[in-house]
């Protein structure tokens, strides 16, 4: 699950899930909830995305920024995400894309501010701050 927490200028989201793949999916859902896509088409082209980072938190932030890049440069948003590989430092995802005509909110970037994936009592959680 994810919930929006107060932040004066930007958007702070708290994510809590059971395992890493669902955390990454939940974070993607939260991002595109903020973006508010308009007139999205059905599932179309499938792409393979590879991201590398020095730890799982950076991997999550970098993955989301790659999704933002796809939105801005190709007007694509993820329809379905299958993680072919997801470790602490590398992920490979097969993403079925949906074309989108426009969207309401300009999310400039997903920041590293306050991001830290923690495991407590069998749950993974992190906070993410989106620059609006």
């Amino acid at each position: 699950m994810h919930e929006i927490l107060p932040h004066i200028a930007d958007v702070r989201v708290r994510l809590v899930t059971g395992e890493l793949t669902s955390l990454f999916r939940e974070a993607s859902d939260a991002l595109f909830e903020l973006v508010r896509p308009l007139r999205a088409a059905g599932i179309g082209e499938t792409i393979t995305l590879t991201v590398k980072a020095h730890d799982s938190t950076a991997l999550l932030v970098d993955f989301l920024n790659e999704l933002l890049l796809l939105l801005e440069t190709h007007h694509f948003l993820p329809g379905q995400i299958d993680f072919l590989e997801l470790g602490d430092q590398r992920l490979v995802a097969s993403i079925a894309m949906r074309a989108v005509e426009s969207w309401e909110r300009d999310v400039k970037a997903v920041t590293y501010h306050e991001a830290e994936i923690r495991s407590v009592d069998g749950e993974l959680s992190t906070t993410l701050v989106f620059d609006i």
């Binding site: 932040h7 004066i8 200028a9 930007d10 306050e114």
Partner: peptide
């Protein structure tokens, strides 16, 4: 000034 990310705005 207000809360930002990293530096304050």
């Amino acid at each position: 000034a207000h809360e930002g990310y990293g530096f304050p705005i």
